[in-house]
Simulated assay, not measured.
Amino acid sequence: MKLGSLKSKESLDGELCVISRDLKMAVKVPQISANLREAVEKWNDKESQLKKVYNDLNEGKATGAFPVKEEDFHSALPRTWLFADGSAFIYHVKLVRMARKAPLPETLTTVPLMYQGECGQFLAPTEDIPQRDVSHGTDFEGEVGVITDFVPMGVKPEEALKHIKLFVLINDVSLRGLIPEELASGFGFFQSKPASALSPFTVTEDELGSAYKEGRIHLPLNVSYNGKFFGKANAGAMHFHFGQLIAHAAKTRNLAAGTVIGSGTVSNDDHSMGSSCLAEVRMIETIEQGAPKTPFMKAGDTVEIQMFNEKGENIFGKISQKVKAV
């Protein structure tokens, strides 16, 4: 099943829509739930109703269906209660720590890294990335993520996997120029982590087929930068699976239904697969050439993030954003 949130003048949460498998048609479902956040909160009651509409839509029998225009959609979940972003790709952690000349954590392979990001507003997947100062070092980070139902405190990793209800793509916007000073203060990310964007559509596990196993999506994340190939790193290379990330987030708190858990930047140690953020490219340049040559984003630069299944079909729609000076 595929779902999206149509932009609305009436609600910051948008209007919940069921999206056809080929992403070509949509239908509003206010009779089931006003928005996705509320649907996830009552998922046990709403899932079967939404599934019926989805089947009807794919069979051409849904009443009120209309053509999809991705620019009319918010991020799949326009706002929620919690966005907790992990860093499950060990190679990315190593490169970024080297870039900051910071030591690797002793628990690198045993305890996930995680920060709490902006969740009261996600940028729409076609919305400009605002840039107040080019020295802030604007960067994109291509990620995969999950949306959970209510998760009880102290949940175990394997049990946590059962709380995943939906999957999304994420562009976790980072301001690299502000990160070192914030981390040096000893209190973590805040100004360096502004609003991120989610894919226009979110999907249930069955839409991923055999690509989803062991708590990971084993598919390449396709990233283009300024219209050119940038990366196709496989998301299946996560060291920590999503159950482990969820359990880490829920160690000392319950997670509200609608919580978004991010994988961190998708990264592979095979450089032929490209990268999912500029920071990685700059670190690789430093290692191989002595200094970074690729600049961070400036006004007018564009990034596109999408994922295709084994048949070459687009799963989540496209995150397509441009940096805009503000």
Rank of each mutant, 00 (worst) to 15 (best):
Ala99Phe: 13
Pro67Ser: 10
Thr110Asp: 15
Glu181Leu: 10
Lys2Glu: 09
Glu41Val: 00
Gly154Glu: 11
Gly290Ala: 05
Ser320Pro: 01
Asn226Met: 10
Lys193Tyr: 04
His241Gln: 09
Lys232Leu: 01
Met153Asp: 02
Pro220Ser: 06
Asn44Leu: 05
Phe89Glu: 05
Leu123Ala: 04
Val53Glu: 05
Leu208Arg: 05
Arg216Tyr: 03
Tyr91Asp: 12
Ile129Ser: 11
Pro157Asn: 12
Gly86Cys: 13
Ala235Phe: 05
Glu59Phe: 02
Thr110Glu: 15
Val111His: 15
Glu106Tyr: 05
Gly258Ser: 05
Ala76Asp: 08
Gly236Asn: 02
Pro180Trp: 13
Glu288Gln: 10
Leu3Asn: 11
Leu36Glu: 02
Asp270Ser: 14
Asp128Gln: 13
Gly188Asp: 00
Thr126Leu: 14
Pro220Asp: 06
Gly137Tyr: 07
Thr265His: 07
Cys119Phe: 15
Ile129Met: 13
Pro200Cys: 10
Val18Leu: 07
Arg282Glu: 01
Asn35Cys: 10
Asn58Arg: 00
Asp270Glu: 14
Val203Glu: 06
Ile217Met: 04
Leu36Cys: 03
Ala34Thr: 12
Glu207Pro: 02
Gly215Gln: 08
Lys24Ile: 00
Met238Pro: 04
Thr302Gly: 06
Lys156Phe: 13
Leu16Gly: 06
Ala26Trp: 01
Gln306Met: 07
Pro67Lys: 13
Val40Gln: 03
Gln116Pro: 00
Gln191Arg: 15
Phe167Met: 05
Leu104Asn: 04
Gly290Phe: 10
Ala235Arg: 08
Ala256Leu: 12
Leu6Gln: 03
Lys311Cys: 02
His163Arg: 14
Met153Arg: 15
His239Leu: 07
Ser199Gln: 09
Val18Phe: 05
Ala256Ile: 00
Ser33Tyr: 01
Glu143Asp: 06
Glu127His: 11
Met283Trp: 07
Ile32Tyr: 10
Met297Arg: 01
Ser174Tyr: 06
Lys46Gly: 02
Gly137Phe: 05
Leu255Ser: 11
Gln306Ala: 11
Lys28Tyr: 02
Asn226Asp: 07
Phe140Trp: 10
Lys69Phe: 09
Pro200Ala: 08
Phe150Met: 10
Asp149Phe: 00
Gly317Asp: 06
Ala291Arg: 14
Asn226Tyr: 09
Gly290Pro: 02
Phe122Leu: 05
Arg100Phe: 15
Gly137Ala: 06
Lys324His: 14
Val144Glu: 03
Asp133Phe: 12
Ala76Gln: 11
Lys69His: 13
Ser20Phe: 01
Asp172Phe: 11
Arg132Lys: 14
Leu16Asp: 03
Lys311Leu: 14
Ala235Ser: 13
Ser8Pro: 01
Gly300Phe: 09
Glu70Asp: 01
Phe66Ser: 12
Leu123Glu: 08
Asn234Ile: 00
Phe187Asp: 01
Asp56His: 09
Ile305Glu: 02
Gly317Asn: 07
Leu16Cys: 08
Val260Gly: 01
Cys277Ile: 03
Asp45Phe: 14
Gly64Val: 03
Ile19Ser: 06
Val168Cys: 08
Gly317Glu: 10
Asn171Gly: 04
Asp128Ile: 01
Ala84Lys: 15
Gly264His: 04
Ala299Leu: 00
Val134His: 13
Asp301Ser: 10
Leu183Gln: 14
Asn222Gln: 13
Leu198Cys: 11
Leu178Ala: 12
Pro125Asp: 06
Pro220Gln: 04
Pro292Trp: 07
Phe83Val: 00
Val146Gly: 13
Pro194Val: 02
Met238Trp: 02
Thr204Asp: 04
Ile147Gln: 06
Lys7Trp: 03
Tyr91Lys: 10
